[in-house]
Design a protein around this nucleic acid. Structure first.
Length: 733
DNA sequence: GAGCACTGC
């Protein structure tokens, strides 16, 4: 395998310095290009140039923001349930939930709220009569890991009394009384059971993260509550937003009565105590000119002046992280006087899970770990042993422009809530320190919280789902935070142009309601539902499944760009990326025999490919339920992808969903949108990056830095746009 | 020549 050879070469070069390491460690070392020696001579103390701050006080609710079981790979240190902070509040908590329909729970890391409260509720009889206690999580890994933990505590097999349900994995049974699930999945359950009637208590965990589906779920729960007064809602929040959540649910005449406590007879905020170690926060005295460089210096300052303990560095993206990891390795070599070593480790979502594992392994003796991470380490992944945090003050945020339909991904100053959350990562196991690469006056100008996703996303999928839930007047839907009107208008226009909504913005039948049911983006749902008319349903199912992987198909290795390029060329279809994806899928199913080794040889991500098979199966089941005949009779060999016939059918079919995302190639190889106003570049991962084309449609446009890249690009004919979207293009011309 | 993080009976 080429990658191993490469690593081996690097390992050979490193051998003299790493003679004492085991072979396994050596390979690790080589892959990370790390393990270096530091100098004692750096004299300046970190504290000299830093403004001191009082640190996070125990009463600061922001400091408590955390996920109990966010890290899938590393369970928190086990504490007997009876010793958890929540234990002493058991009776009071049960009384509050019994008395008030809505409870907002504030609890910090390790308080036990996620694992213990469901058990208390079950013991108190909330599961009598076949009712179920539901606990939602924003992430799949959290739902599975916390369910597994609770099943262990209850001493049942997972899927019996305690179970979980996430997409493609339902480990529940008729006996299940406590059920963990993703919030997106609970929303989907509401399509079948609009009042979520099997649940007696619904706990929405990590609500402060304000994910799109959490926000919508809360709005739906507020509606359900009016028809089900016996339902109990527990919102677990870890931030100052607790009062916003309470006000949201109890916003009635009574709430304005100043003589009654906040929440009136409808709700209460419940503070769980708990322990978090103090974190000493230090700011820059002067703003940094180059925060990456300043971050690097801070790493070495900490290493030379501070006591033992690992460092967690927050940066914005892969490029910065790779640079900093390399620099730490290089600069450490310049230092002499062997003492404690520095071990920089990168952490971002784009790494394979093997590569991510390294950050969870304890540092080798006499070594200080420096984990250089994106925001993934803020909530999704928890690493033990961190004593120092360096916060660069920025995060890359995604936003959707309703006027252009283009997404942007830009580095933005973090919010105060985010900064507090990052700092808190230093105080998990003992008192820690947080170094902020900005001044305290910069901090004062930060927003309180990151704008929720509902204010910066394409709302078409959500609007479609709300319509399917019977919420016709989406403009009056009770959003926790209202999205900008332009986002709503754009989403409605898009759904109308796809034929999902009629002139009165009502869901069309069967097209609109079926689109809502398909767990796939609206434009692709439309494409799938019209595919039978084009005679390419089987192929389109594969394309839809592959396209929803969103670029995670190819496995790229540094230093092997050429090899992976030529591997990709084997699957290339002249007509563009969608047909190439089809070729990949069909090769995986037939030649690949669903084989991990075959994937590796072709630089394909095996996990993603397996997921594509699951998605395809799920989509096929939906279509069959609609009564659509999914004929799989076409043998892949009979299907000459790249040939004129089926390829054109597929491209025409794609145009019926993607017509609004069309562009024309210019002589210089860039693209211009239909109205001619915007210049687009083919993303280097696209086949169209170095090929000629005229008109194309694309699935995604994203602005990063100064360029706008389009991904998943397919050639079409201009005439098709007018043929399949006459009203859309008449308006424009 | 390159993109933060999540997710769907």
């Amino acid at each position: 395998m080429a990658s191993q050879n490469d690593n081996h070469d690097v390992a050979q070069q490193l051998r003299p310095r790493c003679a004492l390491l085991s072979r396994h460690k050596l390979r690790r070392t080589a892959r990370q290009q790390v393990v270096v020696v530091r100098d004692h001579c750096v004299q300046r103390g970190v504290g000299e140039r830093w403004m001191k701050d009082g640190g996070i006080k125990e009463t600061d609710p922001l400091a408590m923001a955390d996920t109990d079981y966010a890290g899938s790979m590393l369970a928190s240190a086990y504490k007997p349930p009876s010793l958890l902070p929540i234990a002493k509040y058991r009776d009071k908590l049960l009384y509050t939930i019994e008395t008030f329909p809505v409870t907002v729970l504030i609890g910090q890391t390790g308080s036990g709220k996620t694992t213990q409260l469901p058990q208390y509720l079950e013991q108190a009889g909330w599961c009598d009569g076949g009712k179920v206690v539901a606990v939602t999580q924003p992430r799949r890994v959290a739902a599975t890991s916390v369910a597994t933990r609770v099943a262990e505590e209850v001493r049942c097999d997972i899927g019996q009394e305690v179970g979980y349900s996430i997409r493609f994995e339902d480990l529940t049974s008729e006996k299940t009384r406590i059920k963990f699930l993703t919030d997106g999945l609970l929303l989907r359950e509401a399509l079948v059971d609009p009042l979520l009637s099997r649940y007696s208590v619904i706990m929405v965990d990590e609500a402060h993260e304000r994910s799109l589906s959490t926000d919508i779920l809360l709005g739906v729960l507020k509606k359900i509550r009016k028809k089900r007064p016996e339902l109990r809602i527990v919102v677990s929040s870890a931030t100052l937003q607790a009062e916003d959540f309470l006000n949201f649910f109890t916003d009635t005449a009574e709430a304005h009565d100043t003589s009654s406590p906040p929440g009136g007879s409808q709700g209460r905020i419940f503070h769980l105590g708990g322990r978090m170690y103090p974190v000493d926060i230090q700011y820059l005295e002067q703003p940094a000119e180059d925060y990456v460089e300043r971050t690097l210096k801070t790493v070495f300052d900490i290493h030379s002046t501070e006591a033992e303990g690992d460092i967690l560095v927050f940066l914005t993206g892969r490029e910065e992280i790779d640079h900093v990891v390399e620099e730490i390795a290089t600069r450490s070599q310049e230092l002499h006087h062997q003492s404690q070593k520095l071990q920089p480790l990168p952490l971002y979502a784009g790494l394979s899970s093997d590569q991510q594992m390294y950050v969870f392994e304890p540092a080798t003796p006499n070594t200080r770990k420096v984990v250089v991470a994106t925001n993934i380490a803020e909530a999704s992944v928890t690493i033990d042993g961190i004593v120092y945090v360096i916060d660069c003050g920025y995060v890359k945020l995604r936003a959707y422009s309703p006027s252009t339909g283009i997404e942007t991904l830009t580095a933005t100053p973090v919010s105060k809530a985010s900064a507090t959350q990052r700092a808190g990562r230093a105080g998990r196991t003992k008192p820690g320190k947080c170094f902020r690469i900005y001044t305290s006056s910069d901090y004062a100008t930060l927003h309180e919280a990151t704008p929720p996703e509902v204010q910066r996303s394409n709302l078409a999928p959500i609007i479609l789902q709300l319509k399917a839930l019977g919420i016709d007047n989406v403009a009056r839907f009770d959003f926790l935070t209202s999205p900008p009107a332009e986002l709503m208008v754009r989403a409605l226009e898009l759904l109308y142009s796809l034929g999902a909504l009629d002139d009165y913005a009502r869901l069309t039948k069967p097209l609109g309601s079926r689109m809502a049911e398909l767990s796939i983006e609206p434009f692709m749902a439309k494409v799938l539902l019209v595919a039978p008319e084009f005679g390419c349903l089987s192929e389109m199912l594969s394309i839809a499944a592959m396209a929803s992987l969103q670029g995670a198909v190819w496995f790229s290795h540094d230093g092997e760009k050429k090899a992976s390029e030529s591997a990709r060329r084997k699957f290339a279809a002249e007509e563009g990326d969608h047909l190439t994806l089809l070729n990949v899928y069909q090769a995986f199913i037939t030649k690949g025999k669903k084989d991990a080794g075959w994937c590796r040889n072709n630089y394909l991500n095996f996990k993603s490919m397996t997921r594509a098979v699951s998605i395809r199966n799920q989509l096929r089941r939906y279509l069959e339920r609609f009564g659509i005949d999914v004929s799989e009779s076409l043998a892949p060999s009979a299907l000459r992808v790249g040939g004129p016939d089926i390829g054109e059918k597929i491209r025409r079919c794609l145009t019926t969903g993607l017509f609004s995302q069309a562009a024309r190639m210019q002589p210089d190889g860039t693209f211009k949108t239909v109205n001619g106003g915007t210049t687009l570049h083919a993303h280097p991962s696209s086949l169209m990056f170095n090929r000629k084309a005229d008109w194309v449609i694309f699935q995604e446009a994203m602005e990063t830095g100064t360029k706008i890249f389009i991904r998943d690009v397919t050639k079409i004919e201009k005439a098709w746009l007018l043929e399949y979207a006459p009203s859309f293009y008449k308006v424009k011309q």
